[in-house]
Structure formats: C-alpha cells, structure tokens
Design a protein around this nucleic acid. Structure first.
Lengths: 347, 347
DNA sequence: CGATTTCGCGAAAACGATTTCGGACCGTAG
DNA sequence: CTACGGTCCGAAATCGTTTTCGCGAAATCG
C-alpha cells in the first residue's frame, strides 16, 4: 500500500506549482513549452496517475455515461454498444454498461444512489423509462438519451421498424405465394424490452393488407433463437407446398429458416423466399436478403445526442429516426449462394 | 441545475453538526436515538443524496468491484454475474461489468487510468491476466480474483472441467457404442477465453484412453451454437449407425444434438445417448443428462474471496476448486422424456 | 523611454464528505 | 461536595484536484 503520487509530488519534482501541473495535464494554453515538457517528464518519471475521485469531486463531472440495456449478448447490442463506446471514447468519455439481468438488479437500480447514476448522463437502449420506473421518472436527475425506443420528452434515436417490415413484406409479395411472418414470442416483450417486434409485426400486417387479399398470410411466434426459425418453417412445410414467402423478424430467425429449408433440400430464393431484419455481418455470407438496420449509426448518433445535451442541458429534445434499407440477396431472388460448408475437424 | 443538497444543508436543517449527520449515515454508535431520528427526517425531507465522488475521494474507497468477462450473453455469464452481483450487493458493494467486446475496447482497458480500475478490486471471469496483459501484470495495483481460470498468484475459483468431462464420458462408455465429443471450435480460444474447453477435451480423451480401446472415439469441432451440435450429429449419423454416445462440451451444444436426433426420429437415451455440461435451468425440461456446474456457488465464492482480500490485502492467495456432479436424466438412460412441443400461435 | 499589454506562473480557495479529538453535560460513586 | 466515567456532540483537519486571480517579467507600442 504505497502512497499514491499526487499533483503535489509532481509539482515539487518539476519545480513548479500544482496549478501549473494541472494546466499541463488539462491542456491549458498558458504554459511555456519548456515547463510543459519538464512537467510531463516528471509525470512519467513518478508514474503519476490523477485521482479520478478527487477530480470528479472537484469538477462535479465523472466523464462517464451509463448505458442501460436488456439482457445483452445478442449481436444487436454488441454492435450498438461498441458503436456507442467508440464514439464516447473519442470524446474522452467512458461508457459504463448496465445490462438489466434480472428484476432484482433492476430493483437496485431504481434507487437514486445506485452506481449507474454516478454518471454524467444515461443512455437507455431498447428501454422506455415509462415502463422501467414506477413513476415514469428517472431515479436521478440526469440527462438521458433513448436508443431504439421513443419518448417525446427525451432525445431519441429510433429505427423505423414498421416501415422496414413493410418493405420486406412487399418485396416478398412480389411473388404470389403463401406468406408467413416469423415473430418473436410475445412474452419476450415487457419491462425489459421496447416494442420493436410489435412494430415489425404491424409493418408486416400493413403490407399484407394493402396487397392482394387473396394471398394466404400467417404469423407464427417462436422463441428468440435460430431453432425457432427452423421449427416455424418445418411446421409450415407440413401444411403448405412451396413456393413460400417468409419474413423473419430478425436475421437470427431467418438463419433458422434458411437452415431448415436447406435441410429439407429446398431451393432458397425459389422454393422458399426469405427476408430477415438487421443485416448482421454474416447475413451476406448466408446470401440472406434483409432489412438493413444501421446499428453503428444508431450508436454514434446516440453518443452525439448525449454529448450535445451535456453541452446544452436546456435544449429541446431531439429525435433522430433512421430509415431502413432493403438489401436483396439470393434468399429472395433465386440462385441463393450455397451455404458455406463448415469445416469440422476429426480427431 | 439546482444545487445539490450537502451534508451541511442537512446538518443545518436538523440543527446538528455535519459530523453528526455523517455518523448517523454511517451507523456510528455514539448518536442519541432522538437526534438520529431528527437527522434521518431531515435527510428524507431534503432528499439528501451523499456525493459519492466526495466520499470516495475522502475514504479512498469506491465500494465497487469491476468484473471483466469475455463477450457475454451466454447463460453461464448471466448466472455467474448475477451471483457475483447479488453477493457483493449484500455487502454494500457494487459490481461494474466490463465485457471485453472487442480488441479496441480491451486496448483502452490496458491503460491504468481506464474506468475499470476505478474500483476497489477486480474479478476476472474466464480470463487470465497472463494472456490479457502484455507484461502479465494488471495495469493498476488492485487486488484481483479469478473465476473460471487458475493462476498461482491470485485468488481463484475454478471448476474441475477435466474431471467433469471424464465423469460424463465414463458414464457414456458404460454402453458400448461409438463415442463422440462435440467441442467448441478452437478459434474461440485465445485472448478472450480461458481454457475450459481445452480442459473438457482433455477429460474426454483421458476417459476414453482409460477404457476399452476398441471402442470408436472421435472429436468434432463446431461453432458455439445449438446449430453446431445439430450439424455434428447429422454428420456422424451419415457415417455411423446408432446406437451412439455423444459428449457435448456444453448444454447448448447438447441441445442441438438432441434436437437433431429428434428430427431424425431417433430415441434419445437409446439410439443416441447424450451428456452435456453446465446443467442449465432448461436442461431438466429437456431431460438432458449433464455435468452440473455450480455457477451460483462460483459467483458467491468469488465475491467472498474479493471481500476477504479487501479485508486482508496481504494474505496468501486462496484457491477454491468446485467439483462436478453427474446428473443422469433421460438423455443417457433410455426413456428420455418427450421434447415439449412448443406452442405456436397462428394468426 | 515610459506606458501598456501579454505571457507564464503560483498562492489559495474551493468542492463534500469522514474522522479525530476534546469538551460539555450528566449521573454516580467516593 | 468533589472526582470520575460515560454519553453525546461539534470544530476543524483532511483528502487531491481544478480554477480564479493577481503579480512580476517580458514584449510591444506610441
């Protein structure tokens, strides 16, 4: 437990005052080049590390943004968080992650003294304060930005999920065939989630309704897991003959559908036309048509909004809505690329 | 931006000195009951929230433990983190989570001033400092506890993966049949992972070798995903006739194997005997035999070790190794329960 | 050359909590 | 009545950093 090196120590070593050292460290202009170097040399030599607690104490800022999100680990959140994290880091902010693993944890986080509120601002990903907090008020008086969720009173970044789904569905309906939507089970919604899948559902419905009503359309609900997609298709194929159209409400489910179709020896893009949502990095390899969701942009916009709000706390809420793009690949236009064979090594 | 309520304000409101308020808040004994109540009333009335930065600044403690882990989102880490978080919370500590999403992030975390080191201690889950940090030294001089990884110089909590795998394999080998291990692809190992799958591989090998050598044994490597398990079994079934024994290196893969077997109309537990590792909550529903890994215990032990080290920084490293238990269910003893049919709602 | 501005620097005052230590007060024992 | 011990409380020091403000020296100007 050796004592920590303080500004004092550095100042003494460099033969200057503590304020000068502080100025050097914070890039103030009124320091002569020669002294700046001398100070930096001392900093290095003594391995000085500024005491963050003291700094935040003094400034009242933590240079940290807390990010709430539902159970994470999905590619969506991995990419979103990475984007947010990168954007914040380039402005000298840190992102502190708070996945809401379970109700108990959430409960702790409803207290104003909980760790997450020890930050300069909050980002809520796929979460709505109205659902999360009893009185619809954040426990602490921090500025907040919502990503993948809308709220009139906060800055938000959203993606037009309904329009994306409609885009995909209309594209599928260009071929006249029984058309199915594979959705995530409803119980996945609730406290922990925003309504993205509900929106996608609506978009599907809407596209179907504004189309030739004689086509058969149906919605299936499955667990959030590629297996879900596979089972859904298997079930459909037991009742219907190809060709079929399938709108999968996310690429993960779409992958399951593709897998199952392949397993049954069907031609992707001909017998079974599939469109997903997300445009995950692997969707291209799979030849999967999909609705591109600009996740990285959502993340960087969120960071931008946070920074802007920190700079101007009083400004009116801003809302950024990102538009979906339909990316047509083999899975919906015939001649889908073959599924790459996974090499398996035998002992 | 209303000014924050300070100890001073409370003291004034309650007609006492600041030190008295502080004592009340920190549970010191030398405060009369009547004043204690008066102070608490003022605290509530003014909605006083202690300034954490000021507190950590003064005490030098943050009451926070940073937890590093690989990309998360798997059930293993969800459960582990939950357990750690709960245990710490009950001792007035917070857990701050740092999933190592990508190299860039890790790189930032190699700097001693990075956010994770703004804590009283570190927990590394499935991570080894020797692999993670260039000079095999933590960037900051914090006590650290390793979970699911071993290191002589740190407190560790481990699980005997090799023995678990051997247990499972020996159990499978009670029935004389071609025996397969489904492992996670090697590229999953590396900076971000500990060697658990390597250990399980070794355990399998060892069990096979100390058994009748005439039985056919083989190792398959697949992606970490239920689909991987399914594909592995499909591949094996193209070359071998049932009955088969399959050791899946985790329940997730085992689920894939079970799914595929069902799909092919085979009897789980008779035609295909499967044992997984983890004993995830859903393994029971699946009738999956498995090696139980006491994840919650690992978490609480980790928290315990952290707390102990914080109390006695100088003590010698302690190592806790948890033993695997074989849980035999239908998937390895015949008469496996039927897979529950997933209800799918039609529009 | 004197007057004024600019530059470089340091002394000192915060920031909000914890903790030490002595003092006031009260009750009880000698 | 005096001494003493215990209980309860508050004044003040302290933690490491940022930031303001003023001072002296140097540079620039008229």
């Amino acid at each position: 437990m050796k004592k920590q090196v303080t500004l004092q120590d550095v100042a003494q070593h460099a033969q200057v005052g503590t304020s000068t050292v502080s100025k050097v460290l914070n890039g103030y202009p009124d320091v002569a080049e020669s002294t700046r170097e001398r100070v930096l040399a001392s900093v290095r030599e003594l391995e000085f590390r500024p005491n963050r607690a003291a700094r935040s104490f003094r400034t009242g800022k933590t240079q940290t943004v807390s990010v709430f999100m539902p159970m994470i680990g999905t590619e969506f959140y991995d990419r979103l968080i990475t984007a947010i994290d990168d954007a914040l880091a380039s402005h000298d902010y840190d992102a502190a992650l708070f996945p809401l693993l379970n109700e108990k944890r959430l409960e702790r986080y409803r207290s104003a003294e909980a760790l997450p509120y020890q930050a300069d601002a909050l980002i809520l990903a796929s979460l709505n304060p109205d659902w999360l907090f009893a009185d619809a008020r954040l426990p602490a008086p921090l500025p907040a930005v919502l990503v993948d969720a809308y709220h009139a009173e906060y800055d938000t970044v959203t993606f037009d999920n309904a329009r994306g789904a409609a885009l995909a569905t209309s594209h599928l309906l260009e071929v006249n065939a029984p058309t199915f939507a594979v959705m995530v089970e409803r119980f996945q919604e609730g406290t922990f989630s925003s309504g993205v899948f509900i929106e996608r559902h609506k978009g599907f419905q809407h596209a179907v309704e504004s189309h030739d009503p004689r086509v058969h359309a149906e919605v299936l609900e499955v667990p959030f897991d590629p297996t879900g997609g596979a089972e859904a298709l298997a079930q459909v194929l037991a009742r219907f003959e190809p060709p079929l159209n399938v709108f999968a409400s996310c690429d993960l489910l779409a992958k399951g559908v593709v897998d199952e179709a392949r397993r049954q020896g069907l031609q992707i893009g001909l017998d079974v036309r599939v469109v997903g949502v997300d445009d995950q990095p692997w969707a291209e390899d799979l030849g999967l048509s999909t609705i591109r969701q600009p996740i990285e942009q959502m993340g960087s916009h969120a960071a931008e909004l946070v920074l802007a709000r920190l700079a101007k706390p009083g400004a009116a809420p801003r809302h950024i809505e990102l538009e979906p793009t339909l990316v047509v690949r083999g899975s919906s236009e015939g001649g889908g690329q073959p599924h790459p064979i996974r090499p398996t090594q035998i002992n």
